[in-house]
Simulated assay, not measured.
Amino acid sequence: MTASVNPFGISITADDIVENLGFFDSWEDRYRYIIDLGRELPAMPAELRSDERLVRGCQSQVWIDVSEEHERLQLSVDSDAFIVKGLLAVVLAALNNKSPADVLAFDINAYFEELGLMRHLSATRGNGLLAMVARIRDEAVKRSKPQ
């Protein structure tokens, strides 16, 4: 996977997240790391926290704004729950600043499996995470150029 500047202002990839989580022995420590990633996300402007950007199917309130710059998706996200903001950071490491085609080609389920993430989330939280990814993928489909 290629590195891209993510919302934290540094280069981090999905591979980096996998490697960093591998350093921790317990899921409690991994959750702390994920929450810390979420704390590094820039604040979403209040005017973007609208009903049209609200992701349905999430236990917490989650907003996702997708714009496009230079044929790459730019994601702005927010949530009212620390762990969810962290999960959004994990997703952004994989999908932000990617072309719509790259977003659609990325195997997010394999990524989550490699992280062991879905096994350690409640069913409700896991469904919410998948709803967030589905929203981003839907936006990628809308912006995809025919081959």
Rank of each mutant, 00 (worst) to 15 (best):
E40L: 14
Q147F: 12
H120Q: 12
R56F: 02
Q147I: 12
W27V: 08
Y31P: 00
V91A: 01
S4A: 11
L48S: 10
S60N: 09
K145G: 00
V141L: 11
S67N: 10
A14W: 01
D36N: 14
I17F: 02
S144N: 08
V55P: 06
I12A: 10
A46C: 07
T2H: 10
I10V: 13
G116P: 08
L130P: 00
E28K: 14
P42R: 12
K85C: 14
A105D: 12
M118G: 00
E52G: 08
A131F: 07
F23S: 11
G22Y: 08
E47D: 15
I10P: 02
D65C: 06
R49T: 12
H70D: 15
G9W: 04
I108E: 01
R30Q: 05
R49Y: 01
D78N: 14
E69C: 12
T124E: 07
I12S: 09
S4P: 00
D51M: 05
L21H: 02
V5L: 14
M44K: 04
F112R: 04
A3Y: 15
W27T: 07
V55G: 07
A43E: 15
V84E: 01
Y111H: 04
A3D: 09
I10R: 14
T124L: 10
G22N: 09
Y33W: 14
D80F: 11
V66R: 03
G126T: 04
F82W: 09
A131P: 00
E52V: 11
V141S: 04
A14Q: 07
P42K: 12
